[in-house]
Design a protein around this nucleic acid. Sequence first.
DNA 1: ACAACGCGCATACATCACTC
DNA 2: GAGTGATGTATGCGCGTTGT
Length: 312
Amino acid sequence: MSNAMLEVRHLRLVRAIAEEGGATRAASRLHLTQSAVSHQLAELEGRLGVALFTRVRRQLVLTAAGERLVEAARTMLGDLARLERELHRAGTRKREVLRLVVECFTSYHWLPPIVARIADEHPHVEVRIVTEATREPVAALLRGQIELALVSSPVRDRELVSTPLFEDEWTVIMAPSHRLASRPHVTAKELGAETLFAHDAPRSDVERLRELIAAERATMPRVVLVPLTDALVELVAAGLGVAIVSRWAIAPWERRGEIVTRRFTREGLAERWSAVYRRDAEPRLPLARLTELLADATFAAPSRRKVSGGRR
DNA sequence: ACAACGCGCATACATCACTC
DNA sequence: GAGTGATGTATGCGCGTTGT
């Protein structure tokens, strides 16, 4: 079958006989019978045309050729074992997966470059975005469905650790030609006369807004729910209404001048984004590095700044 | 279907330790 | 020194697996 004279099994055989001091013990080490070992050895010596052992008394004693072969067998088998471990390690490490979710309905325009960087710097980690968990990132974390969540709402849970990423702003967006675009900020009263597009999400932006407007004793605008950020922004850009969203989520449209952002109320609505993971299952990926990349990616956009400090 | 292969079983043969 | 049992290697033969 094999036209090679010397095979790996022969290396193991000769080494085992030499180290065990006989064919019988070598056989038990190799999980063979003495007969099989003897056959194999005879066959090998026949193929090579040289005696590897001399049969002196009831013993198998290495010849010079045998010594040479055992020495080579040790280094080769050692190399093989090392290679196997290395390949196995590489094979299993490849399967390290970091499942990630972001608590907003953005088009994730900022994420691909970061994922590419991580893949480049940490080839053993595969970052996977789990969009299904967007609506309930904390629940998904606690259920072990994801390893990392990027959230803007505060997280208070004993089992979770939250690392601040950057400050953002909950901001009113509108078409550049919109009548409110000339104002430095938008008041609750002014908003009441508008059509407001909002995400169709359980973490209800609408509820938060309702509270804010009630506090100002203003009327609630007409709300139209939209499932996707892209659609929502396009509706706003077309001048059909306004929306209140996390500013970094709509950065590309703002940069292209398709929409403008205005502060809601004189003080504005600050929002802090954090990376959250389970206390008992910190992602194997260097989280600090991911945080750094995220902060850098968002830092480039206006009115956003890194949050200094570590975990809370 | 056939051939090659690797193995195990049974056994032959060799040597050693021990006893008488 | 002969006899005996334990221990070790060598080999003929047949079987199951595998590749063609």
